[in-house]
């Protein structure tokens, strides 16, 4: 099998960025007309992800010692119910005001000191743990609110692409009842996304398969 190299940059790309009327130019973040490049295909993170993806502060979606810090914990299990000890769980969420630490939040970036909103945890013994703050409700973009939630990516040997799920909170029953994402799920499947209160935060196990298979999302 031979594969001809095929750069997604078209061959006549104008690398000099000389502006000519009606000619799309590249390299400036602005184009006159949309181009379509095919995306790079994903691959499994494999068994050696710890080499490349270990951060000393990976678990800290918020700086240690921040008032109100909680731990989100859970166990990742496979279709036999065995723990998955070589996965990586990443979390992304709003701060307690419902804002994201990101410039594309149209209401302005989160202002909570020490809040990154992103956590990354390996799963030794199958268990992930992320230090964070409980998120606030987040606008749904259409005049309503989403219940407090955390977006989650799971990467592992045996998964050729990440799988995506969400964590909701059991003590937000009222908000959960009107959340547009939860509401769109069959009632008996919603519980797979709802974390239960623990001594130091919340716990939600992630089941990759089985009767209690977690609800995963296509994003």
């Amino acid at each position: 099998m031979a594969f001809e190299h095929d750069s997604p940059l078209v061959q006549d790309a104008d690398e000099t960025n000389e502006r000519r009327p009606g000619t799309p130019r590249r390299g400036t973040g602005f184009l006159d007309e949309p181009l379509t490049l095919r995306t790079t295909p994903s691959a499994t993170v494999g068994p050696y992800l710890a080499i490349g993806l270990t951060w000393p502060d990976g678990a800290d979606a918020v700086a240690p010692g921040t008032a109100g810090e909680i731990w989100l914990r859970g166990t990742v299990r496979d279709g036999n119910g065995d723990v998955v000890p070589d996965a990586m769980v990443e979390t992304w969420q709003a701060d307690p005001d419902g804002r994201f630490a990101h410039p594309d939040d149209p209401r302005g970036s989160a202002t909570t000191p020490g809040f990154r909103g992103f956590g990354r945890s390996a799963t030794p013994g199958g268990e992930f743990a992320v230090r964070t703050l409980k998120p606030g409700p987040v606008p749904d973009g259409e005049g309503g609110l989403q219940a407090p939630h955390v977006d989650v990516s799971v990467f592992a040997r045996g998964l050729l692409d990440r799988v995506v799920t969400r964590i909701y909170f059991a003590d937000e029953a009222g908000a959960n009842a009107t959340d547009p994402v939860l509401a769109a799920l069959p009632e008996d499947r919603r519980a797979t996304l709802v974390a239960q209160r623990t001594e130091d935060g919340y716990r939600l196990d992630i089941n990759l398969q089985g009767d209690a298979e977690t609800v995963f999302f296509a994003v």
Binding site: W92, A101, D104, R116, Q146, L185, Q209
Partner: peptide
């Protein structure tokens, strides 16, 4: 790819419309 057998979810993933959480990300 054998390892996918017990790990890759078997149910069809549910479409998640892109809202604020999905269109932002860590800086």
């Amino acid at each position: 790819y054998r390892s996918t057998g017990l790990r890759a979810p078997l149910r069809t993933p549910v479409d998640l419309p892109h809202r604020l959480t999905e269109i932002t990300g860590p800086v």
